[in-house]
Nucleic acid binder design. Structure first.
Length: 391
DNA sequence: CCTCCTGTAAACAGAC
DNA sequence: TGTCTGTTTACAGGAG
């Protein structure tokens, strides 16, 4: 049985119907939402949005690294991953992992029938990475998008943009994926809605951010999700890959990034590390606004207990531990249970076994550090400064 | 076979 | 009014 963290599993989800109660009127603490929109009047999220075209098209790829983004995926991609591209990756030979994991896609069905489903194509046939379906679930895509944003929060539109930018596959996919994204945001507990200041004056909708409590989970899921089949080829994080003896399996990202999947895993580790370090300063654990650097954001629903559920049945923490047995229908149990955090006992327990997660985090972080130190001194430096910034 | 997770479609309401 | 956003329900398919 795979160990997808329950929280990541499906309707891991986060917002509960209570969410509705959260809406404008009852946004509780955040409702006030009227944060001093310190931001450039034009955009509360200027730091992140200003790089995004009006149409939502993100032009972040050419991103000039921002101090603010020291820990986000941008630098990771740019520095860590790209280094791989420029580095020995090219000299590597071996199975080319397309984005779908040609060696065995974890998930068979493609996003859409129209997709240039690599899996359906004969080997060797058009395996255009740019058109391949990402090996990540929407949850992870969203997660990455949010995490890589300077403010650690993005409006759906920007999430779309990020996904489109990094996974061109979606640009040619039916728009249904957007629905899926929204669906995920709403359902997935890992994501929390944040109210923008100025009463949405700067755009529709709210900002979405990752619930800190689920970061490790997401990290883990990310780590596990990208190439399940590839793990067999990869050296476990425990043994930090050295520059000289890393498994050489190429993994081509849509953007043209080419990296060894093991390295990619290391990238994940990067995130893990970052995540771990950020846990202590997570906005959610603060009394104030969610973002350390941005006080213009207000958590719409920050209570981890304020779980999402389809059935509108509030679940108390204690219930979360024991529920899962009194579910109506299969489907509903599935959803209500996961959605509202009342994961089935087993899963719930798994999710709560933080020590395990921590170990994983540490383990991954360990290899990550090696990689960071060896391959991306810049990244390390940035992360460091980022940390300082946060303080 | 069953359960769970994920993706997709669709309906609907509210906000802009 | 049309579009976007957010929520919810339902269902299908794959994996464990």
């Amino acid at each position: 049985m795979h160990e997808y963290p329950p929280s990541l599993m499906g309707p891991i989800i986060g917002m509960s119907p209570d969410k509705k109660a959260d809406s404008p009127g009852s946004q509780g603490m955040c409702g006030a939402g009227t944060l001093p929109e310190a931001e450039s009047a034009s955009s509360p999220l200027a730091t992140s949005l200003d790089r995004i075209g009006p149409s939502g098209a993100v032009s972040r790829s050419r991103l000039e690294p921002e101090d603010d983004e020291l820990t986000n995926l941008n630098w990771l991609h740019e520095n860590l991953l790209q280094n791989f591209t420029l580095g020995d990756a090219q000299s590597c030979s071996g199975p080319l992992f397309d984005i779908e994991g040609s060696v065995g896609s974890p998930r068979g069905h493609s996003l859409s029938s129209s997709s240039s489903s690599v899996s359906s194509g004969s080997p060797g046939s058009e395996r255009d990475p740019l058109k391949s379906k990402p090996p990540f679930s929407f949850s992870l895509l969203i997660y990455m998008a949010i995490e890589q944003s300077p403010s650690k929060s993005l409006p759906v539109k920007d999430i779309y943009g990020w996904i489109l930018e990094h996974f061109p596959y979606f640009s040619s996919a039916p728009t249904g994926w957007k629905n899926s994204v929204r669906h995920n945001l709403s359902l997935n507990k890992c994501f929390r809605k944040v109210e923008r200041g100025l009463g949405k004056a700067n755009g529709k909708g709210s900002l979405w951010c990752v619930h800190p409590e689920f970061r490790p989970t997401l990290m883990q899921a990310l780590k596990k999700q990208h190439f399940p089949s590839a793990q067999a080829f990869c050296t476990p994080p425990a043994s930090p890959p050295s520059a000289s003896s890393p498994p050489c399996h190429l993994f081509s990202l849509e953007q043209g990034y080419s990296l060894k999947e093991c390295d990619f895993d290391a990238a994940t580790a990067m995130m893990l590390l970052k995540s771990a370090s950020e846990q202590n300063i997570d906005p959610y654990e603060q009394e104030g606004p969610i973002d350390l650097s941005r006080r213009d954001l207000v958590v719409v629903s920050r209570d981890p207990k304020q779980d999402h559920n389809y059935s509108s049945v509030p679940v108390s923490p204690s219930q979360q531990q024991t529920t899962g047995s009194s579910a109506p229908t299969h489907g509903q149990q599935e959803r209500a249970g996961l959605a509202n955090g009342s994961h089935p006992p087993l899963k719930r327990a798994r999710h709560e076994s933080k020590p395990d997660v921590d170990d994983e985090l540490k383990e991954a972080a360990g290899s990550l550090l090696h990689l960071a130190g060896i391959r991306t001194s810049l990244g390390a430096t940035r992360r460091k400064s980022r940390k300082l910034d946060r303080k």
